[in-house]
């Protein structure tokens, strides 16, 4: 059994290295004959980290993107209809059903059996689904009842 404790107050790089070895020795070599480890952890005894009092959780993506977990769904964009708004085919679209859609919001709409990603035009008694790509024309909605607003787009996710 070989245990050498590092001096507690020295901080040169060399001593760090030495300390590391000692820790490994503690972990691996201190065993009772029956196989039970005497120590299972290295015991550091140096300066406490000056950052200890300032530790924060990492920025939580879920919390940033999902304000209402019960009402938030992820869908997959499969068209370039909102290309001009920066939503590309393949993007993951974050949709919050708890929000009320207003004029000029990006929405997912259920219309004539399809789920569409569009900008809602809803003003002066006129309703339409707009696109921001020249290849798509606006869809006029004659009766508001024939349109179901599935949810409001609150974000996109893109893994490169």
């Amino acid at each position: 059994m070989k245990i050498r404790h590092p001096p507690a107050t020295t901080t040169s790089p060399e001593h760090y290295r030495f300390w590391g070895e000692a820790a490994i020795q503690l972990e691996t070599s201190v065993q009772l004959p029956g196989g039970l480890p005497l120590y299972s952890h290295p015991v550091p005894a140096g300066f406490p980290s000056p950052a200890d009092d300032h530790i924060e959780d990492h920025p939580d993506l879920e919390r940033l993107l999902v304000r209402h977990p019960a009402a938030t769904f992820f869908l997959r964009a499969r068209s370039e209809a909102l290309h001009g708004d920066g939503i590309l085919s393949g993007d993951i679209v974050v949709v919050d059903r708890s929000l009320k859609a207003r004029h000029d919001t990006l929405i997912v709409a259920a219309f004539q059996g399809e789920m569409l990603l569009r900008r809602l035009y809803w003003k002066d008694g006129h309703t339409a689904l707009l696109s921001s790509h020249p290849g798509f024309s606006a869809i006029q909605i004659p009766r508001i009842a024939s349109l179901e607003i599935w949810g409001v787009v609150t974000g996109i996710l893109r893994v490169l």
Binding site: F74, R78, M115
Partner: peptide, 13 residues
Amino acid sequence: HFTTRWSDLREVR
């Protein structure tokens, strides 16, 4: 599995 798997998300056009 629309809501529990990334590979199964519902597609929108």
